Simulated scan of single mutants.
Amino acid sequence: MIDTGFNKVIKSRHGFLSYNKNDIYIGKSIEKYGEFSHLEAKLFEQICKDKDVVIEVGANIGAHTVYLSKLVGSGFVIAYEPQRLVFQNLCANLAINSISNVFAYQEAVSNENGTILIPECDFTKNNNFGGINIENSKNGTLVNKQKLDNYTNKIDRLKLLKIDVEGMEISVIKGAIELIKKFRPMIYVENDRQEHSKELIELLWSLDYKMYWHLPRLYNENNFFNEKENIFGNIVSVNMLCLHKDSSIQILEMDEIIDSKHHPMKK
């Protein structure tokens, strides 16, 4: 382990990772277990193969980006992360692992092209840096934002669209409708904001997608460091795996979403 201040570098399950030791989820998981949300990554193993193309919106420090890059082999990953220092950490992880098939952008993704202010965090203090809401910020760093529809005629295939954007999922999808209609990718999207869930589900239904809840626990008992202490309890990530209705893929051991008002975290 190399300690450089608020960042450390560690040998993880999928390669070397630089992470913020003050990050209460991603950083703490990498430090304790040598991985982050590997039960999500296990699902990507079943989806992504050599030559595939993946777009990852909200890549954070690249804990999944690094592995996705290996899964697609001679394909490539397009990764977006708008937070300045988090993006720099992402690029460090791509560089330290000699990854050349990822195109990383310090930009936001939305339903329109333009600019957006991204808040700056104090990375020397404990925080959930992956959970920062960037909407309607009055201070911060000005970055570009773009629609994924800009890629409609720039790529020739798209296997997976992965979205983890802390409440901006609807905007991302509205800006990607032509891309989605053209390539019908599998979509893996976070849906942990109950106030947006119904609209998000119905938007994807309107695009002829079927959805399934995927609720992987943050703690993986078969973690890379073989650490038995569970510091996350029963905390799960709340995501949806979405397939176009014409897909022949069968989904096992996941509940199909048939009621847009239902949310698994609703009390």
Rank of each mutant, 00 (worst) to 15 (best):
I24A: 06
I24V: 15
I24W: 02
I26Q: 15
I26W: 04
I30M: 06
I30T: 00
E31M: 15
Y33R: 05
F36C: 12
A41L: 14
K42N: 13
L43V: 08
L43S: 01
L43H: 05
L43E: 04
F44L: 15
E45A: 05
I47R: 01
I47T: 10
I47V: 12
K49H: 14
D50P: 10
K51C: 08
K51Y: 11
V54I: 15
E56L: 13
A59C: 08
A59Q: 03
N60Q: 09
I61H: 12
I61R: 13
G62A: 11
A63M: 10
A63T: 13
A63H: 13
H64I: 02
H64T: 05
T65Y: 03
T65E: 04
V66C: 08
Y67S: 06
L68E: 14
L68Y: 13
S69F: 13
S69W: 10
S69P: 10
V72G: 08
G73C: 06
G73M: 00
S74N: 15
S74G: 14
F76N: 13
F76H: 14
V77L: 06
A79F: 08
A79N: 07
L85P: 00
V86F: 09
C91Q: 09
L94T: 04
A95P: 00
I96C: 03
I96L: 03
Y105F: 14
A108W: 00
